[in-house]
Structures are given as structure tokens and as C-alpha cells.
Design a protein around this nucleic acid. Structure first.
Lengths: 230, 230
DNA sequence: ATGGGAAATCTGTATGACAACTTGGGAAAA
DNA sequence: TTTTCCCAAGTTGTCATACAGATTTCCCAT
């Protein structure tokens, strides 16, 4: 497997991560790169496309190709793609991963979250109360809740990684669960978490979050073993 | 920004993650896709290249394009690219992320690790003792140590995510640190972790790992504030 | 039935051309 | 001189065509 584009990718990536080219800087034009690597424009473009897929490059028609600044979006995009593949093979592992990160998010949020985050959390709680029973809307609010906490942690990596998985996990895990008791239970758990964060109690917030997620996981596994498929 | 390839990517990705196409299955040939989307082969290929970059597709010359099975490598590739970009902006956050995951890995390894993992860990310890003082080799062994523990956790996500960051973090963090006391300290900390895992003591293993990493982080930050740059 | 080889299929690369868009600078106007 | 406007050069996006190199399929001769 020769793959001319592979070599080119390796070389350019190498320069990027060696710091020779910094985020925001424009890459030489495709034509220039053709000269430099002695390859056709086709190959150069294939290399660029692949790096774009990774989120390493960003192109603007008419202007040029630029090194991405490390937007969390790019990480999220890729992790989402990955999560969608792994979802069947190792859903358990993915959930455990999520529990680990979110528990830590809650803990950190209790010390770092400002008033604006708390306000957002309370707004989401109200919304969940309002849409109780409507699964699609409830899920959406649920996701918003967890992302808000991740944001409140102050660590952008957590928020990025989590945002990548959240939607898919919740969609997947909440299939076939519609009784009103369950909705109320979720809201109650969320409220407990918010209270702990508001009071600035890291351990309590972490513990509440962990309990909430572990119970979700159990619910999901029960449903699955009963054959709860779409 | 129209971006014909964008639409195609969205559609194909949508089908993949909706489960309409499963890992291992072959995608229709480029020509067929041209017909289906009413686009030129160029556009189809650009879409494919980008998804290849994400690790979503795998192509074999002469045979076809296939949906990747969720190999951890693909995630690692992408996270590595990301880590290289974020490394300047939020190195602290990246390290905290690592500490969180590795602590959990150590905890889980204490209950899940089999004899083979323990054997590997001990072998790595010996090797570190042998190359004490040679920074490049020591770093390599250091990475191997942490990855072995991640593997011993039994959760492939941890191992994948960590493998993606490990090399870059350690390379970056160990710059300018060469005195013999430091090497000994690292080995001592590692030995403590291995012992706890061998005895099957989750909390102790986790605590030892956390102490080790937090101390590394502090060392690194000290060096940095003194102007320790490449 | 089987083995071998040719044909069909498929991805990788090269070339040339044009469209769509951005950018910078120069000409024209104030 | 300063400002405004427009266009020309530069750059990426898309198309069509052709052929090389690898793999797979299938048919024919043994």
C-alpha cells in the first residue's frame, strides 16, 4: 500500500505538531504544494481532504487552506463518529467512560461554576418540568442539562469530549422508557445535583451525579435484556 | 458555503450511525455513488477522503471502500491530532483530563488485571531501572507503563483515548528534567502502583496513581514557569 | 470437479479546464 | 490627499477523461 497522499499527510502533520506551522496560518496554495511534493493536484487535495476530516485543516473557497485553531468542535465531530461505531461493540465501556467524566464535571462545577451557569441549570430544570412526558423534548433538555454542567466545570476538554457522546448516548439509552415516574425521578436527581453545586459541595455533587448516572445505566441494561429495541 | 461534499458526508454518515450500514460492509463503488448523488467522481472521492480522515472508512485499492470497524486506532489518530493543536492553548486541562482517566484505570486494573498484565508491568519496571538516566528510552518505557495499566483496566475506551494523548504529553512534560533523583522517584512511584494492583487494592492503586500524576504535573508547571522551553 | 487465466471491477493518480469566491491594489471620484 | 469602487490575480471547488495497479469474478480447458 504505497498511498502517495499518506506521505504528504505525515510530512505536513509533522510540521504542524512540531510547531513549524501554527494554528491560523495559511498553508501554501495547492499549486505550490504540488511543486514541493512533486505530485499532482489530485493527490495534494486528497491529503488535504483527509486532514480536513480530522479537523486539522479548514478551507475557505477563494482564500486558502488554514491550520485549524483547536476548536472543540473538531474533536467533538470526530468523537461522535467514533462513538457511533463503537456503540454496538462496547456500549458498556462508553457509558462507564461517561460516568467517570460527568462525575468529575459535577465535582468541579461545584467549585468553579458561576452564577450564569447556575441560572442556566435552573432554567433547564424548569423546562424539563414543563415537557415532562414528551420524550423528544425531554431528551433535548436532558442533554442541555449535562452539557451545562460540563461547561461549568471549567475544563474545555471535558465539555468537548462529553458533547461528542452525549446526544448519541442519551438517545440510545432512553429508548422505550415513557412512564411518568421515570421522568419525575430524573428531574428529582437533577435537582439534587444542582442544589449541591449551588451550595458549593463538590463531593456531594459528584456523588449525586454518580448515583444518577449509575441508575440510568442500570435502567438501560434492564431494558436491553428484556429486548427493548427500536 | 455550499460544499457539495458536505451533504454527501452527512447523508452517508447518517446511514452509518443509524445502523443502515454496519462496520465491515462495503460501500457502493464510487461510480455508483456518483449516479446516486448526481455528482462527479471528484466530489464523491473528496467526501470519502474526509471520512477516511475521521477513521470512518477504510479503502483497499482494487477492492473497494469499507466501513471501519471501530478500531481504537482511528480514535487515537484523531485525538492525537487534536492534542497537538490544543497543547499550547490548554495544556493544563489536558493534564487534568489525563489524571482523571489514569486514576480510574489504576483503580479498575486492581480488580481486572490478569497475570499477563502484571507480568508486563514488572517487565517495564525492570526496563526503566536499566535505562535510568537515558531520557529518550526512559520516556518510552514510561509511556509503555501507563498504557499497560490502561489496557489492564479492561475498558478499551480508556486505553484508546489515553494512547492518543500519552506520547505527546509525556514528551512535552518531561522536557528539561534529567537529574537522577527524579528518575528514581518516578520508578518508586510506579512500583507502588504495581504493588497495589498486584494486591488487588483498587483505592490504594488509584491513590498512588493520582499522587504520581499530580506530582508530575507540579514538576512540569514549575519548570515551565522558570522558562523551560525547547 | 478443478485449476488457471483472462476479463470485469474498483481505487489511485494525472491532466486540463472552468466556475465561484476572496483579496489586494490601482484607477477614478470627491 | 483621501476615499470609494471595481477589476484582475490568486485560490479553492467541481467536472470530464484517461490510464495504471490491484483485486475479484467467472468461464474455459484440462
Amino acid at each position: 500500500m504505497s498511498q502517495r497522499s499518506r506521505e504528504i499527510i505525515d510530512e505536513i502533520e509533522g510540521e504542524i505538531l512540531a510547531g513549524k506551522i501554527s494554528p491560523g496560518v495559511r498553508l501554501p496554495s495547492e499549486e505550490k504544494l504540488c511543486e514541493r511534493f512533486g505530485a499532482s493536484r489530485t493527490v495534494i487535495r486528497e491529503a488535504i481532504q483527509q486532514m480536513r476530516g480530522k479537523g486539522l485543516l479548514r478551507t475557505t473557497k477563494g482564500s486558502g487552506t488554514y491550520i485549524s485553531d483547536p476548536s472543540l468542535d473538531s474533536l467533538a465531530t470526530v468523537m461522535e463518529a467514533y462513538a457511533s461505531l463503537v456503540v454496538e461493540a462496547g456500549f458498556n465501556e462508553l457509558i462507564d467512560f461517561r460516568i467517570l467524566i460527568e462525575t468529575e464535571c459535577a465535582r468541579m462545577a461545584a467549585t468553579n461554576a458561576g452564577e450564569s451557569v447556575l441560572k442556566e441549570l435552573r432554567a433547564v430544570l424548569d423546562r424539563m418540568e414543563k415537557v415532562k412526558g414528551v420524550r423528544a423534548k425531554f431528551s433535548k433538555a436532558d442533554i442541555a442539562f449535562h452539557l451545562a454542567i460540563a461547561k461549568g466545570s471549567g475544563n474545555r476538554i471535558y465539555a468537548g469530549v462529553l458533547g461528542a457522546m452525549e446526544r448519541r448516548i442519551i438517545e440510545y439509552a432512553q429508548t422505550n422508557r415513557g412512564d411518568i415516574d421515570w421522568y419525575s425521578g430524573v428531574i428529582e436527581a437533577h435537582r439534587e445535583i444542582v442544589d449541591a453545586i449551588a451550595l458549593g459541595l463538590p463531593d456531594k455533587a459528584a456523588e449525586a451525579m454518580r448515583r444518577h448516572l449509575v441508575s440510568s445505566k442500570r435502567h438501560f441494561l434492564d431494558l436491553e435484556s428484556l429486548g427493548g429495541e427500536t
